[in-house]
Design a protein around this nucleic acid. Structure first.
Lengths: 226, 226
DNA sequence: GAAGCAAATTTGGTATACCAAAAATCCTTG
DNA sequence: CAAGGATTTTTGGTATACCAAATTTGCTTC
């Protein structure tokens, strides 16, 4: 059952805690405390922290405790900008190279998300949504592209989760997914690229709205230190 | 003096050994041996290996020694494909957002490379060339873009070093750099993007030539294991 | 009472020892 | 002599103990 390595298990656990808000932004992630709490030693927990740092969920600081990152809107926007370029490339390559079966597997993810949208909770839907984007990146047949895309997707977890749980843009998301799938099936690279771009532009708008909406209640003084 | 952390120092040391061929592709990187050789313990060496793995210089395998990666042409081509997308994006964003001073600093790198091309050895020239590309990515004003680009650049170190030391494409490289700088100065995004794309297309051709040329002498049986 | 310095505590960095899994080798058997 | 299995060895994974740097707190002094 535990096919994944111990550091990855720990990272998954901590990631959920961070996304769910158990560990709010700014919290120090202390090796000793969390290691003791989870009943493991510091070594694997150390590696788990590196994994989360690579994903951008925690920030490493020299000679200081890593802290849970609090991404600014600019950082999230930067992420989405890069992701857009990668997904647009993915869409084109998928049209050019992917097998029909691969495109159908993308379609299946979209269908599953449409079916389950109302019966699952936001975090689960959210994971399916991520796997839709991941599927497109994978179908492009470029492992490097898939890997880089995956790492950016990981960084967006928190921001997307937060904005998704606020604003339910159910119809638009499902419609856009369907349009992307249609363009891929038709091997229409131009349309597919445009649809992907539009989809991510909407994501950016959603995220912007979210940041706008929390700007006020965000009075938790972000410690004047540094 | 030792401002960088111990794992980074070790990673730098190992990286040079790998690039210079002291550790040829396929070599197992054993924690114990290298730790003993460098007079450090396994813990920081372990982290150093993770750093190199992130850069793609070594491959991690579950329950096996990490080995020095021997990138296939396909992998290098995949890398360049993604890098192209990122640098094209960089070129556009740089035209749109960068300050004149930032563009001039890119120009300075190109000038320095042109000046020193004949007086430095290939590895140094090569590092300047990398910093030219890095400068464009930085000038785009998107830290995420710069970081992802940097990591891809790191992966290409070995392949580019090898191909660069074989084929001296001095004139074309310098001319293309100049054309890119000119387009950036003119804030001509379309031209800049096209030039960057062309530059990387040529890189791909060079790398392809290199792989073609070593294909024969590559008879070192890559251990039939696995 | 405030400011500065020193000591103690907290925290990440490093070394080392132990464990489990996998690979290789050697012995045994057909 | 070959093939298969068991044992030994190699190797990465994990736990723990120690160290050094940094922060914080409390005492002393002005």
């Amino acid at each position: 059952m535990t096919d994944e390595t111990l550091p990855e298990q720990i990272a998954t656990r901590l990631r959920r805690d961070i996304l769910r808000g158990v560990l709010p932004p700014g919290t120090a992630v202390k090796e000793r405390d969390h290691a003791a709490e989870l009943g493991v030693s510091r070594t694997p927990l150390r590696e788990a922290i590196r994994i989360l740092a690579k994903e951008g969920l925690v920030q490493l600081r020299p000679a200081r405790s890593p802290i849970v990152a609090k991404p600014s809107f600019e950082e999230v926007a930067d992420n989405i900008e890069v992701m857009s370029a990668l997904e647009v490339l993915s869409a084109r390559l998928t049209c050019e190279r992917a097998s029909d079966a691969e495109i159908e597997s993308i379609a299946e993810v979209a269908d599953r998300m449409a079916e389950l949208y109302d019966s699952l909770d936001m975090l689960d839907i959210f994971e399916i949504d991520m796997s839709f984007h991941r599927a497109i990146a994978r179908a492009a047949g470029n492992p490097v592209l898939a890997e880089v895309h995956q790492s950016l997707l990981a960084r967006l977890w928190r921001a997307r989760y937060l904005s998704a749980s606020r604003k339910r843009s159910r119809e638009r998301v499902l419609r856009q997914h369907a349009e992307i799938v249609a363009a891929l099936r038709a091997r229409d690279a131009e349309t597919a690229q445009a649809q992907v771009q539009a989809h991510l532009d909407h994501l950016l708008v959603n995220v912007a709205d979210f940041f706008e909406s929390v700007k006020d209640e965000d009075g938790e003084a972000p410690e004047p230190v540094e």
